[in-house]
């Protein structure tokens, strides 16, 4: 619900801006920003469902470096030291599994649903 409010606010702001400046204020600006924290060698939440176009940001809050590495090699962060962040925008619906390439027992998944009819998705 909070996300919807944010999205609504961003959309409204975008609309206002679009009226004022007809130039570039493209679709990515509508993307939500969602966080995954890395705590105690765990991605939290480990499985996250978002709509297409969402940017997910990971923050490493451990004292040990980690990475965010797509199992299908679609994305990979650099080594994230304590408090370092990594973001990736998921444009296409699908299930994106990932892990820490240094501590591969750490796994997570981002489930990306299409923006239309996502509520009705199976």
């Amino acid at each position: 619900m909070k996300i919807d409010l944010v999205r609504g606010a961003v959309a409204a702001a975008a609309l206002q801006l679009a009226v004022l400046t007809v130039t570039a204020f493209a679709a990515p600006a509508l993307a939500e920003d969602i966080s995954v924290n890395i705590d105690n060698f765990t991605f939290n939440p480990p499985r996250l469902t978002v709509t297409a176009g969402t940017t997910v940001s990971w923050t490493n809050r451990d004292d040990i470096p980690h990475t965010v590495t797509s199992s299908a090699k679609l994305f990979k962060s650099k080594t994230l030291d304590t408090d370092d962040k990594y973001s990736f925008t998921f444009a296409t619906p699908g299930v994106y599994e990932y892990f820490c390439s240094l501590h591969p027992h750490m796994t997570g998944a981002i489930v990306v649903e299409s923006t239309t009819g996502s509520n009705a998705a199976p």
Binding site: E97, Y98, F99, S101, L102, P104, H105, T107
Partner: peptide, 10 residues
């Protein structure tokens, strides 16, 4: 034994 580690593995 620290390279090319696989997701979910050791």
């Amino acid at each position: 034994n620290v390279v090319d580690l696989k997701a979910g593995g050791l």
